[in-house]
Write a protein that binds this DNA or RNA. Structure first.
Length: 427
RNA sequence: GGAGAGAUGGCCGAGUGGUCGAAGGCACUCCCCUGCUAAGGGAGCAUGCGGUCAAAAACUGCAUCGAGGGUUCGAAUCCCUCUCUCUCCGCCA
C-alpha cells in the first residue's frame, strides 16, 4: 500500500511511475472521491464534536440538578444528522481503501523501464553450463527413467500439476531442504521458523496477496468460521511476524527462514510448463525474509540475493541474476532480482528464486513499525526471497548432473545429507 | 466436545454510566542532584486518521480499552454475537 499522502500531494508523479508497470490509475475517480472524503469527514467530525460537547453539558447540568431536556433534544437532532454523515463517510472510505489496496508499489529508480521479461537486465552470470557428449534429457525423462518420479500416480491421487517422488529421489528432495536451511541458519544469520500453512485473510492482506490475487490461492471454507487460505509462499507467515507490532530498533534487522510447502492455484497459467515439476499446485520452498531499517533495505536486498545465490553455487548449478524491469515485477516490490538456473533439458535459464525489496508497502498494510531515534513509530522495510525453490532445485540437479546412462551424480555439498548415496541410479 | 475464568497503552495493572485517552508502577527520553555502571528529585512519554501548512514543528478535531452490533443525550463500564487466551474434564498425533 502506498502512502495516501503521496497520492494527495504528488498525484501526477505517482500516476506516471505506475504507468511504467502498466497500472492505469483512475485519476478522475480518485480525485472526486478524495474531495468528497475531505468534505464529508470534516462535517462528520464537526458533528461528533458538537455531540460530545452537548453530552458533557448534559452531564454537568444534571450534576447541578438542572433541567437538561432542551439540550437532549438538540442532541437528538445532531445524532440524526450524524448518522447520515457517518454512513456517507464510511462508504467513501471503503471505496478509497479498495483503490489504495489494489495499487502496486512504485518501482525504484534503478529499475529498468520495460513491458515484459524481454526487457529484464542480466546483472551477472555465474558458472559455465556443462558441455555434454550426449543429448541431455529433461528431468521428467530422467526421473521416470529412474522409476522415482510418478506423474501418473499423482494425477490419480489429485489431478494435474501434482507429483509423486519415490525412493532416493524423495530423499534428495528432503536433503535439499535440510541443506538450504543449514546454510541460511549457520552461515547467513537467519532464524529458522516453523509456521502455519493455513492463514487468515487479514494475514494475506498484509503481504499483498489479498484482495487482488484471490484467484491464485487455495481457499479452505469452514462451516462456523472464517475461511483460511493455504499459503502460496512462506513469505506470508514469516513477514507477518511483525504484523501490528512495534519492534525495538535495536532488534532490527530480523532475518527469518522457513521451509514450507507452497500452494498455488496458478489460475491463468494453463498451457505453460504442463510437463514436469516446474509449475505445480504444490511445491516446497525455503524462504528468506528480512525485516529491516528503511535506510538499509537496498543493501539488504543485495545481501539476500547473495544468500540465495550461495545455494546454487554450492550445488554447482550455473545461473544468472536478472534485474526485473518495471513491467515484470510483482505488485509489492520496488526492485526484484530473479535467479535463473540453467536447465540443459530445456536449453534455457529458468527462474529458481525471486528476491524483492518491498520497502514499506507490506509494512504499511500490516502496520509493522519500529521505534526510531525520536522514539516515534516508523514503518519498517520488508524483503523476501526464495532461498531457493526446492522442486526446481531438484530439477536443476537432475538435468545438470545427469550422466549418459541416465544416472545422476549427487553434488559434493549434498552428499552428507544423502546418507552415503553419491549417485542416483535405477535399481 | 463439556465446565469455568479472562482480554485495558511498549510491559504490568486500576477502573461497573458523565469531568476517563484512561490512576499507579515498570521501561524509555530530557533536566537536576549525587565521591564513581547504584540510589534520589522533577518533567515528558499511546496509536491511527483529519484540519491549519509547501513541508516540518506546533496547535487543534475525531476515533480507538479483543472484534462487531445494541441500549443511552453520553459506554472501557450495561446487553447481545463472535474471536482469542488461560484452567479443568473428554478426545487425539
Amino acid at each position: 500500500m502506498l502512502d495516501v499522502q503521496l497520492l494527495r500531494n504528488e498525484l501526477d508523479d505517482v500516476v506516471n511511475r505506475l504507468k511504467q508497470r502498466h497500472y492505469v490509475f483512475d485519476v478522475e475517480r480518485f480525485s472526486v472521491l478524495e474531495k468528497e472524503r475531505k468534505q464529508v469527514q470534516m462535517a462528520t467530525q464537526e458533528l461528533q464534536a458538537q455531540r460530545n460537547a452537548l453530552s458533557k453539558d448534559i452531564g454537568q447540568a444534571k450534576a447541578k440538578g438542572l433541567d437538561a431536556t432542551s439540550l437532549m433534544e438538540k442532541s437528538h437532532t445532531i445524532n440524526a444528522e450524524l448518522e447520515t454523515a457517518q454512513q456517507a463517510l464510511s462508504s467513501i472510505q471503503s471505496q478509497l481503501e479498495e483503490i489504495l489496496l489494489s495499487i502496486p508499489n512504485l518501482p525504484h529508480s534503478s529499475v529498468p523501464v520495460g513491458d515484459s521479461a524481454d526487457q529484464n537486465v542480466e546483472v551477472r552470470r555465474v558458472g559455465q553450463p556443462r558441455e555434454y557428449s550426449f543429448t541431455p534429457k529433461d528431468h521428467v525423462d530422467l526421473g521416470e527413467g529412474l522409476m522415482m518420479m510418478d506423474f501418473n500416480r499423482a494425477s490419480i491421487l489429485s489431478g494435474a500439476r501434482f507429483s509423486v517422488l519415490k525412493g532416493p529421489l524423495a530423499r534428495l528432495h528432503r536433503a535439499l531442504t535440510q541443506f538450504m536451511l543449514d546454510i541460511h541458519t549457520q552461515e547467513h544469520g537467519y532464524q529458522e521458523a516453523y509456521v502455519p500453512y493455513l492463514v487468515s485473510a487479514t494475514t494475506l492482506k498484509g503481504t499483498g496477496q489479498l484482495p487482488k490475487f484471490e484467484a491464485d490461492l487455495f481457499k479452505v471454507l469452514r462451516e462456523d468460521a472464517d475461511p483460511l487460505y493455504l499459503i502460496p509462499t512462506a513469505e506470508v507467515p514469516l513477514t507477518n511476524f511483525v504484523q501490528d507490532t512495534i519492534v525495538e530498533e535495536a532488534h532490527l534487522p530480523l532475518r527469518l527462514t522457513a521451509h514450507t510447502p507452497c500452494f498455488r492455484s496458478e489460475a491463468g497459467s494453463y498451457g505453460r510448463d504442463v510437463r514436469g515439476l516446474i509449475r505445480q499446485h504444490q511445491f516446497d520452498k525455503v524462504e528468506l525474509v528480512q525485516i529491516v531499517h528503511p535506510d538499509t533495505s537496498y543493501t539488504a536486498l543485495e545481501e539476500l540475493t547473495r544468500h540465495a545465490e550461495t545455494v546454487l553455487q554450492r550445488l554447482e548449478l550455473p545461473y544468472r541474476v536478472m534485474l526485473l524491469c518495471t513491467g515484470d515485477m510483482g505488485a509489492g516490490a520496488t526492485k526484484t532480482y530473479d535467479l535463473e538456473v540453467w536447465l540443459p533439458g530445456q536449453n534455457a535459464y529458468r527462474e529458481i528464486s525471486s528476491c524483492s525489496n518491498c520497502e514499506a508497502y507490506q509494512a504499511r498494510r500490516m502496520q509493522a513499525r519500529f521505534r526510531n531515534q525520536k522514539n516515534k513509530p516508523e514503518l519498517v522495510h520488508t524483503l523476501n526471497g526464495s532461498g531457493v525453490a526446492v522442486g526446481r532445485a531438484l530439477v536443476a540437479i537432475l538435468e545438470n548432473h545427469q550422466n549418459e546412462d541416465g544416472s545422476i551424480t549427487i553434488p559434493q555439498a549434498l552428499q552428507p545429507y544423502m546418507g552415503g548415496i553419491k549417485v542416483l541410479k535405477r535399481s
